[in-house]
């Protein structure tokens, strides 16, 4: 019976992406996130860049790559908003790192794992944004509607399933 070590499992399930995919998919996510809420205001409930951050982090299974991808996507997202640059950057850096770390431990190809993971990371993103606004920026009267954040998490989870299935086709096994 072959003994599969931690390293061998990691190496077996580690994926890489074509550079064009690595560059264009996050950019497309940011452009779509900026464009679609105009004709469809309810689309603002989704966070497409967050889903892309989670997907690349768990697929590459490298915490550093996850953190850097999250930082880049978050900073790009911030530069389109009126917020100080770094709010989404910090939140998505932590999320990318955490997602990649978790991806090392569990099977992230499973559908139920993906559902739980996306739901949990969406809530974590809301919590991080709340803490950054309240503690780092110092907006004392910043309030989050946690019911709405739950709704965000459910919506992101529902959107993540088809998006992840679509992006699975772009994976290259190393």
């Amino acid at each position: 019976m072959p003994i599969r070590s931690y390293t061998s499992r990691r190496e077996l399930e580690q994926h890489s992406f074509h550079p064009a995919v690595t560059l264009l998919v996050p950019v497309a996510a940011i452009v779509l996130q900026a464009m679609l809420p105009r004709p469809f205001p309810s689309f603002a409930i989704f966070d497409l860049p967050l889903l892309i951050t989670i997907f690349f982090a768990v697929s590459r299974r490298s915490p550093i790559a996850g953190a850097l991808t999250g930082a880049a996507i978050g900073l790009l997202q911030d530069s389109l908003t009126g917020q100080p640059i770094g709010v989404n950057g910090i939140a998505k850096t932590i999320l990318g790192y955490a997602a990649a770390s978790i991806g090392l431990q569990i099977d992230v190809e499973n559908l139920s794992t993906r559902v739980l993971m996306n739901f949990g990371f969406s809530l974590l993103n809301s919590l991080l944004l709340f803490l950054i606004h309240r503690r780092l920026i110092g907006i004392a009267d910043f309030h989050q509607s946690w019911g709405r954040e739950l709704l965000h998490a459910v919506a992101n989870t529902l959107l993540a399933i088809p998006v992840f299935l679509l992006l699975d086709r772009a994976k290259r096994r190393e």
């Binding site: 809420p37 603002a44 389109l80 908003t81 009126g82 917020q83």
Partner: peptide, 10 residues
């Protein structure tokens, strides 16, 4: 376009 974020209404 929009900012794409509900926390920043731009």
């Amino acid at each position: 376009g929009t900012s794409g974020s509900e926390l920043s209404r731009i």
